[in-house]
Design a protein around this nucleic acid. Structure first.
Lengths: 222, 222
DNA sequence: AAATATTTTTAGACTAACCTAAAAACACAT
DNA sequence: ATGTGTTTTTAGGTTAGTCTAAAAATATTT
């Protein structure tokens, strides 16, 4: 009988997935250590164990990637995390800045049936409250063609569809600026001095946005 | 900074609460070991640690009781467990025999806000799907005046309000017999030979019920 | 009250997950 | 290619939680 993975092991798989997601290159020990806020030595320890279980491809000094089995587990965790986030915002009226932490716990609940019924109950949402895509039962993601606000051309109509950072402070700040998912945006001007932007929001107010913020907002052209 | 209890520690508190709930006497090491399906030596170990944290009153060879703090934590766990069970049956259409296992995991999610909002979302239920009372925020239980079906007088109208055992097999069996919460019952006859009962269910069918089953059903006179 | 049986605790060992400090491997600049 | 600096691994130690086997305390029986 093979018992389920511990939450710790699951978190390692998720971290490796996240590091590899964009870059496609193997994740380094350090990448994982930083993401999990732990030490490199601890990571090496765990990599050996996960490798033993055929969940990762690991060779000393060469970095780590997920095996197919590892990928399935990682995407299932992301699926659960994001579905629970939708539950918390849509059904329990939590703010989008409050849900991440709770979902970090809920994603480790083991019950396929629960996940699938939750998805049903929520009407098969395709994106979570931060605009991240929710993988389906088979682990397939529906990616969008989105672009960073910082890279958007002048005078192009767009809508906010996601964020590139999930920290509470950032999300609360965005809300205060009235920059939430679905907000309509047009860049009216860009200032090369500090790379800040002048934007019109929802065809009403105009405001400037710092480069740092603009690099953490995803928009879609319309 | 005092960090939250581990799930293991929480489970010990819950077990001690359960043993002490009815009897009022201190729980023995063995009681706890049996309930948690572990060994007495492990329990002794843990009792020392929980005592250190002032969550239990423990004296060698004398058994264990919960301190006020320990009781608060234990009832909070029961509250969460039962609220989640209501969620699973009422919102996700799980059967009453399926919810216990999943709720065992969900009860360890740490977020007061989540529990309170869940309660709100479920319309402040007073009882879980098995008829057990759900403690309020302050940990107060609303007990009912209920009686075992086995102790019910002949020809007394009653309603099933709870069960004394939560095993999957028993609950599925009850459902097959059409004995669910809310079913109306009248004992028409009792057979001293094997202490089985002849009952009328919902003013319709008549059937016999074994002594073992009758000892695990709670009814309320009407 | 002594003998026996049961329960509980101690002693010692194991695993998972972490850490620090030192050694080994790798990267890369001169 | 040699030396320097960074990254990764090893070595060894810690804590939580578990176990078995033996010792100690309590309970029961005669």
């Amino acid at each position: 009988m093979k018992q389920p993975l511990s939450s710790t092991e699951e978190n390692y798989l998720k971290a490796i997935f996240k590091v590899c997601e964009r870059s496609d290159k193997p994740a380094s020990t350090n990448d994982v250590a930083i993401l999990l806020n732990t030490k490199a030595a601890s990571v090496t320890d765990m990599l050996k164990r996960l490798s033993e279980k055929s969940l990762i491809n690991y060779m000393k000094y060469k970095g780590v990637t997920l095996t197919d089995t590892g990928k399935i587990i990682a995407t299932s965790l992301i699926r659960k995390h994001r579905l629970w986030e939708v539950f918390l915002t849509d059904k329990l009226s939590f703010g989008w800045e409050e849900v991440h932490e709770i979902a970090e716990q809920l994603e480790h609940i083991q019950s396929k049936e629960l996940t699938n019924r939750l998805e049903e109950f929520l009407d098969h949402p395709k994106f979570d409250p931060h605009g991240d895509p929710i993988p389906d039962r088979e682990g397939k993601f529906e990616y969008r063609q989105q672009v960073l606000l910082a890279d958007l051309n002048k005078n192009t109509n767009s809508v906010i569809v996601g964020v590139n950072e999930h920290g509470t402070e950032f999300l609360q700040y965005l809300e205060k600026l009235n920059l939430i998912l679905g907000s309509k945006l047009v860049v009216l001007d860009t200032f090369t001095y500090d790379n800040s932007l002048l934007v019109r929001v929802n065809d009403q107010s105009e405001q400037t946005i710092s480069a740092k913020v603009a690099k953490n907002i995803f928009v879609q052209k319309i």
